[in-house]
Write a protein that binds this DNA or RNA. Structure first.
Lengths: 148, 148
DNA sequence: ACCTAGCTTAGATCGCATCTAATTTACGAC
DNA sequence: GTCGTAAATTAGATGCGATCTAAGCTAGGT
């Protein structure tokens, strides 16, 4: 096998090792698939397609296993909804999502004033808050109002 | 077939007719399945099990078709997440959800101060807001901290 | 009583995800 | 460098929730 010299800033490998995960070619390829993307919200299948291009032996099971591990250690966030699960590498704790009801796109958004929101009921231990706004994205809002 | 006398307050039938949907025994049974439930967050399969008990010919396809129609006309709300889709008959626009990371239960919650939250980005047309808090529900928070 | 768009049906099919059991590999210990 | 082992990977089977199909039935208007 060709020995690939580690790049001077091998962040990906380091972030895995820090969390007790082994570094494998498969995991490098899977992590690299997120840098390749535009908005960063990708399906497991997107990741597989991108990663298998440079690693033909890759199995889908590995993609699912690895995505699960990466979510577990906090390097990715799952975004569930209708359709396949999306994985979001944006770890900014203050960002939320907007889902367009017309084109189906998912975008990152930010909210102002959310720090003052209180849970009315007591007894719950809140670990995280997921906010998803739904409606029309800027593109769809200006190109007609039909719902798909 | 036995003619069932309509109850004095046949809300279910009326709410269907108002929205241009026909009233059928299947749809009555499906709607009735929501009254039978405790918290009201049920899966399509829960609905099928409850409804088929009194209507043995009922098909799953009808349950899915009908749930889809009821969501479309606004009588139910879909709640997506990991696992099967839940259907929520609580139409209170101000309620949100709490998902317990230990037992998986979904509860209705209310938030205070949310009316002051603003979307930082512009160009979006917001139709609805979904907020899901995650963590430990009151029961799980007081009976140990292990994650399932 | 009739007509027909709307509804229901059993069963096939689909898509996403997970599981299985065998094999390979990363990497710490020596 | 080599060894040992737990961790990771694999192809393919399996599972589950949901949707589709094509044929038959029915609610409700006229």
């Amino acid at each position: 096998m060709v020995r690939v010299s580690t790049s001077s800033r091998d962040d990906l490998a380091e972030s895995l090792r820090e969390r007790g995960l082994r570094v494998t070619p498969q995991r490098r390829a899977i992590l690299a698939a997120f840098s390749a993307g535009e908005n960063g919200h990708v399906t497991a299948d997107d990741v597989f397609e991108r990663a298998v291009a440079g690693l033909p032996e890759l199995s889908r099971a590995t993609v699912y296993n690895t995505l699960g591990e990466l979510v577990r250690v906090g390097l990715l966030q799952r975004v569930d909804g209708a359709g396949p699960t999306l994985y979001d590498p944006n770890l900014d704790r203050t960002h939320h999502h907007f889902r367009c009801l017309r084109c189906g796109s998912l975008s990152d958004i930010h909210l102002e004033g959310e720090e003052d929101v209180q849970l009315a009921e007591s007894g719950y231990v809140v670990e995280r808050t997921r906010v998803t706004l739904e409606g029309l994205c800027p593109t769809c809002a200006t190109t007609g109002d039909r719902r798909r």
